[in-house]
């Protein structure tokens, strides 16, 4: 009885649900049966070596890649590549990419307000009012008339985040959003993401920033070769990885062995 009730609550609060997801490129299997549930308000961080399929996973969730098996449910509704409901369902999924994907021919303001106006048919005044408010929150109030080429990498990514937030998505996907940034700009973007997490947003983050992952995550997921190998609370997974693969991956981020081997002069 007790157990059943808990499952029921979990089901209700699940925003995103992946069931046996399989993705292949030319017979190479990239994702091999991924099962994953993301609950309302949860911040899940996916880590893993390059090519483990973590970025592909995010692209599949947004139906930018067709899948060869399994299903994706967003609030119980299937997300299918080529589906008629895609434009509507994608509004519920916010996504920020690694490379700067701002529209270079539009100002910051137009970048942000294009989709609320064209997709959600909101008035220009309404969209611009909210855009200003969001730009203020990420510290870019003075940039609304700038073109993307006039912004630094960190500023571009913050605008990309605002452009996604204005659509009021249910879940936010971040695909290595700081990987292409200069080190001094990484922090300003991560701070915006920490702020979103503190607001209780549902987030699924792919990153190589291990310290950030530990700080922001409710749950860390380690992927390798298309599988979820291990998942758990950040402190457990980072400090006591259960699998050899996770351990050797995490070891790449420390230099303990080098320091130990170094002879005192």
């Amino acid at each position: 009885m007790e157990h059943d009730k808990e499952v029921d609550v979990m089901e209700k609060n699940t925003v995103l649900s992946l069931r046996g997801l399989v993705k292949q490129f030319d017979n190479v299997t990239i994702l091999d049966g991924i099962d994953l549930d993301i609950r309302q308000g949860e911040v899940a961080v996916i880590i893993g070596p390059s090519g483990c399929g973590k970025s592909t996973l995010l692209r599949c969730i947004n139906a930018l890649e067709p899948v060869q098996g399994g299903e994706i449910l967003l609030e119980g509704e299937p997300v299918v590549s080529g589906g008629k409901n895609l434009p509507r369902i994608r509004q519920k999924i916010g996504m920020v990419f690694q490379s700067y994907d701002l529209f270079p021919h539009l100002t910051v303001m137009d970048n942000i307000t294009l989709s609320p106006r064209k997709v959600q048919k909101r008035s220009r005044e309404d969209a611009e009012r909210e855009a200003r408010e969001l730009l203020g929150r990420v510290g870019l109030s003075d940039k609304e008339k700038s073109y993307p080429r006039e912004l630094s990498g960190g500023q571009k990514q913050r605008v990309a985040i605002v452009r996604m937030l204005i659509m009021h998505p249910e879940i936010l996907l971040f695909d290595e959003v700081t990987a292409a940034l200069d080190p001094e700009m990484v922090r300003e973007v991560l701070d915006v993401m920490l702020d979103l997490a503190a607001q209780g947003r549902t987030m699924l983050i792919v990153t190589h920033e291990m310290n950030f992952a530990r700080a922001v995550a409710d749950r860390v997921i380690f992927m390798d070769e298309g599988h979820i190998v291990e998942e758990g609370a950040p402190d457990d997974l980072f400090d006591h990885p259960q699998t050899e693969r996770a351990r050797s991956f995490l070891n790449m981020f420390t230099f303990e062995s080098v320091r130990a081997a170094k002879q005192p002069v």
């Binding site: 692209r59 947004n62 930018l64 895609l86 434009p87 509507r88 994608r90 509004q91 999924i93 916010g94 996504m95 990419f97 490379s99 994907d101 529209f103 270079p104 021919h105 294009l114 989709s115 064209k118 997709v119 959600q120 990309a160 452009r163 996604m164 659509m167």
Partner: peptide
């Protein structure tokens, strides 16, 4: 025009036509 431009337009909920008209063609 890099594919990411269309992808980000789609991920904002635009249809392919909207992405073409507002994002791809002007560039």
């Amino acid at each position: 025009i890099p594919p990411i431009q269309e992808e980000s337009a789609l991920s904002l909920g635009m249809t392919r036509i909207q992405a073409a008209v507002h994002v791809i063609l002007p560039q």
